[in-house]
Each structure stands twice: as structure tokens, then as C-alpha cells.
């Protein structure tokens, strides 16, 4: 990782009404990189997927803290870490397959697939009973001076 130029960490209670707060806080913070609308939406979507997963799966029927850490590095990259101390994932590679879900009919099993395709890098680590950490990176293209 190149030098960190800015960083923020936010702790959220895992309530679904905080999902839009997480997206807005993220948008606000990464504005300093002047992303285009597609880049911004891609990152917002990926973060929404990860935070929703912590709420819906990690803390299913319980309420816990979700930590969102965002770093900006001098190579114009956004590094995001979403962490929960929920139930964890038994089989990560299975969980990352498209259409795989342990959720109800409101879930489609596409969250990880979307995070992977909308971001440049995705890594997932998890321990059953301990929690889950999702790390993502996306490079923001530099705008030409006009």
C-alpha cells in the first residue's frame, strides 16, 4: 500500500437504518478524490453490500457493532475495511459463489459477486463464531485538468 493521506473509522450499530448513513459518510469522505459518478456508485454499492451482510447475516436476530474504516492513499486508491463480530462464515469460497445465500427470499446471493465486480480487489476473512472482515480496494481515475 502506498502512503495513507487520509483515514476515517466509523462505528455503527448494526441497524438497517444505518445503512444509508454508512453510504453517505463514505460518499462524503471520498469526495476529496473527485470520483466520477460511476466510481462513486460502484463504491457505495460495494459498501452497502458489506454493511448489509453484517446486519442481515453476521448479526442475524442480534444487534452488534460494525466498523467501517476508509483510507485514501497517494496512488488515488480507496481502501475499505468492514468488520463485524457476528456469526462468521463457515465456507468463504462457497459464500462468494454467485447465487449462494443462507438468507431468506429477500436475498439473492449476489452481494459478494457485486463487491468483486464493482471493486478492483476484494478479500474476505472470517472465523465462525468470531466475525467477518471484508477488505476492498478501488482506484479512482485521475481527472484531466481542463
Amino acid at each position: 500500500m502506498k502512503n495513507v493521506v487520509n483515514e476515517v473509522t466509523i462505528k455503527l450499530l448494526g441497524k438497517s437504518c444505518n445503512e444509508s448513513f454508512a453510504r453517505s459518510a463514505l460518499s462524503f469522505f471520498i469526495m476529496q478524490l473527485d470520483p466520477n459518478i460511476d466510481e462513486l456508485n460502484d463504491i457505495k454499492t460495494a459498501v452497502s453490500e458489506a454493511v448489509t451482510n453484517s446486519i442481515v447475516h453476521g448479526y442475524r436476530n442480534t444487534l452488534g457493532i460494525i466498523t467501517m474504516n476508509i483510507k485514501i492513499t497517494d496512488d488515488n486508491c480507496v481502501h475499505i475495511i468492514i468488520r463485524d463480530k457476528g456469526c462468521g462464515i463457515e465456507n468463504i469460497s462457497k459464500a462468494r459463489e454467485p447465487m449462494f445465500t443462507t438468507g431468506d427470499s429477500d436475498r439473492s446471493g449476489m452481494g459478494f459477486t457485486i463487491m468483486e465486480s464493482f471493486m478492483d480487489k476484494l478479500s474476505v476473512s472470517s472465523k465462525p463464531g468470531k466475525g467477518t472482515v471484508v477488505k476492498m480496494v478501488k482506484k479512482i481515475t485521475a481527472k484531466k485538468e481542463s
Partner: peptide, 12 residues
């Protein structure tokens, strides 16, 4: 202005 994978189930 925003939609994530939750939109898939809504459309379905």
C-alpha cells in the same frame, strides 16, 4: 439515486 442487490428481490 441508489440501489444495491436488495433491488434484485424487489424486481423479482
Amino acid at each position: 439515486s441508489f440501489m444495491d442487490s436488495s433491488g434484485i428481490a424487489v424486481v423479482m
